[in-house]
Nucleic acid binder design. Structure first.
Lengths: 216, 216
DNA sequence: TAGATTGTTAATCGATTAACAATC
DNA sequence: TAGATTGTTAATCGATTAACAATC
């Protein structure tokens, strides 16, 4: 349990691991498991058991020594903690391939985000639909943000217009931007920006491959 | 410069930041800059100047006090260091929206990877082409890996077949897998797996948004 | 009861940040 | 020369891992 005042900041690595646990827990639940222990999760996901215990404790779940956690309860706590069971309304801008991928993604499994609409300026895309998400003209963005009270923007435009579109998002009232372009965004301090750079991931992959080849 | 024997391992955060620098440097070069200093990069990308100096030093670049780094040389060193100027041959499996997004991605800007072909089992996708990448039947995967000497596999299938496809990749001779599915892959120790979880990014975004709302 | 696991506190490890000398 | 910046070494900070007590 955490202190009431000055709630200790949860480590970002923990927040990134929780969805990984969640995916595994849902799979384990489907296979009929009733209880699950931290060491069991750790072994499955190749992590340190103590780390799993600590991570799960952040969600507020209470386990029982020797038995572990009730899997239904644990899934509920993790989803609650991450906010994945809430409706997190989002608008997507840039209905290209990556944008369409995210629209389709949420059709099946919930991504934690509810993409209410997508926006673009290309006439060929406007009026189309991917995974139940309609593509609208960008000129309607600002009005729609206010009307539907949307706080999250997903940025999947080409990199060279990313800053311009991000500025538009903010002036329309968006509070958090998930930036999937390679561009670095300069935005006011109070805006939350989450960068997901494909390049960074490729870079890590290549370095690790290089390293593993050196060993052999 | 680094020691010859027992080369110090480069921190992963550094490897992730280098492509961000690179993107900015290329933009700055287009705008006609000849030299650039670490504090200038740091200011632009909202980072610590010392950290930028250290990160760049890993690439082997030599700067000049007061002047900074020659931008052409610096770009060359970063690309060389990351392996982005090499041809890193990759096969993609799962030609859905996300897969198509990656195929299209590299058409314009180079992703550091050269996707030679995509594979799927859906008849409707086989024979199609996205961003100059042809979609072939998965039954040809193994043979093609050997023929073209491909070492990198990009996994963009649905999560429930990810493990099975990953196993196929490895037995065909793939050495590194970029896993863009939410599944955790159980693979031999010597295989490099780079996980890029959309869920983890959403989780961080939501937590940070929640946190920023609490402050106001 | 014995032993595995939770939950917490302490030690370690690694990355970031600060300090400072070298240099152009 | 003076001062900004590189490059390196030291201090700090935060996350991981280890140790251990509590407990079912």
């Amino acid at each position: 349990m955490q202190k009431e005042k000055e709630m200790k900041q949860v480590p970002e690595p923990t927040i990134k691991r929780l969805p990984v646990y969640l995916h595994y827990l849902i799979k384990a639940r489907e296979e009929g498991a009733m209880n699950i222990s931290a060491p069991a999760i750790a072994k499955e996901l190749n992590l340190d058991p103590t780390q799993v215990v600590k991570d799960l404790a952040y969600t507020g779940i209470k386990g029982r020594p020797k038995i572990g956690y009730n899997i239904y309860e644990l899934i509920h706590f993790v989803e609650e903690y991450l906010g994945f069971n809430k409706v997190n309304k989002a608008f997507l801008v840039g209905a290209g391939n990556l944008g369409s991928a995210l629209m389709a993604y949420q059709a099946g499994q919930t991504l934690g985000l509810k993409i209410l609409a997508a926006f673009d300026i290309s006439e060929s895309k406007i009026g189309t639909k991917t995974g139940q998400v309609n593509v609208l003209h960008m000129k309607n963005f600002s009005e729609m943000v206010k009307r539907l009270d949307v706080t999250i923007g997903i940025l999947t435009t080409p990199g060279d217009v990313a800053q311009k579109v991000a500025d538009e998002m903010i002036s329309a009232g968006i509070k958090a931007i998930w930036n999937l372009t390679p561009a670095y965004l300069k935005l006011p301090e109070n805006v939350v920006v989450q960068n997901t750079s494909m390049y960074s991931n490729v870079a890590v992959l290549l370095k690790r491959l290089e390293h593993s080849e050196k060993i052999i």
